[in-house]
């Protein structure tokens, strides 16, 4: 049951999308989000959809995997659609109806916006390993170090958190099985009873998470970890020609979206 979570899952591959420098990809995702929010007409949405589809094709990620990522957001998507359909003023679909043509159009656009937003950002995590991602983030945020922002500490905490998600999930699975073997019941009963039933999972989970954190700290210290100062990398990130091309394409995309917005297309 818990194995179905695909949050931030990385699908290894050997495509251009995988090979791009993580910094490029992070910048492109930001560009993508800004561009997406410029779309306010059908042509704008069509352009963004086409770009997203092209990127998906480039990364060879199956659309079915994309939809798996979208599924948890379904409630929000449906709610947005419903609100827009019923609360937009305009010409009714039929005289006397509350639903308007404008409402339907808005709903479709809002749903598209959410779906595209999720797909675009998932493309980043699907094609970039967590380590590359945090490395890229750290380098991008490097200038902030001058302002005494603890960039290195933040990124190392992030990569550790990402690293331990699968471990904690499998641990939760194990503890759940063990408690079920002692007759614990997680599926029936009132809300309060079910919340109480979680205690036998949460307590052991926290105990082992703290223990793990302790052991990890000792292991890091015994390998002479002392923060980011003077730390070098095995794999130096270097921008390649393809990164500059990708960034240029991103700039063109953003420019197109600004122009389209200007003319409200």
């Amino acid at each position: 049951m818990l194995k179905d979570i695909t949050l931030g899952q990385y699908f290894p591959g050997n495509t251009v999308a995988h090979k791009l420098d993580p910094r490029t990809k992070i910048i492109l995702v930001i560009v993508y989000i800004v561009a997406l929010f410029q779309a306010n007409g059908w042509i704008g949405y069509a352009v963004v959809t086409a770009v997203t589809a092209a990127c998906m094709a480039l990364s060879k990620i199956k659309p079915s995997n994309m939809f798996k990522g979208i599924r948890p957001m379904l409630v929000i998507i449906v709610l947005t659609a419903a609100l827009n359909i019923f609360y937009t003023q305009g010409t009714p679909v039929r005289p006397g109806w509350i639903i308007t043509w404008e409402g339907i159009a808005r709903a479709v656009q809002m749903v598209l916006r959410i779906v595209l937003l999720i797909s675009g950002t998932f493309l980043l995590t699907y094609t970039t390993s967590p380590i590359a991602l945090t490395d890229g983030l750290e380098l991008l945020m490097n200038p902030l170090k001058k302002l005494k922002v603890p960039v290195h500490e933040m990124t190392i905490m992030m990569s550790m958190a990402l690293r331990f998600i699968p471990t904690l999930i499998s641990e939760t699975d194990k503890i759940m099985s063990a408690q079920k073997a002692r007759g614990a019941d997680f599926e029936t009963g009132s809300l309060v009873q079910r919340a109480k039933a979680l205690l036998p999972i949460l307590v052991p989970l926290f105990v082992s998470a703290f223990k793990r954190a302790d052991e990890l700290a000792v292991a890091m210290e015994s390998r002479c970890y002392h923060g980011g100062e003077g730390r070098t990398r095995m794999k130096q990130l270097r921008m390649q020609t393809r990164d500059y091309i990708a960034l240029a394409l991103g700039a063109v995309f953003l420019a197109v979206m600004f122009v389209l917005k200007r003319y409200a297309l």
Binding site: I175, S177, A178, A181, P204, V207
Partner: peptide, 15 residues
């Protein structure tokens, strides 16, 4: 109740 199962490292289930 009839078939008791003790997992590996069962001490991790104590709560």
């Amino acid at each position: 109740w009839k078939v008791g199962l003790v997992f590996q490292y069962p001490e991790y289930q104590l709560f």
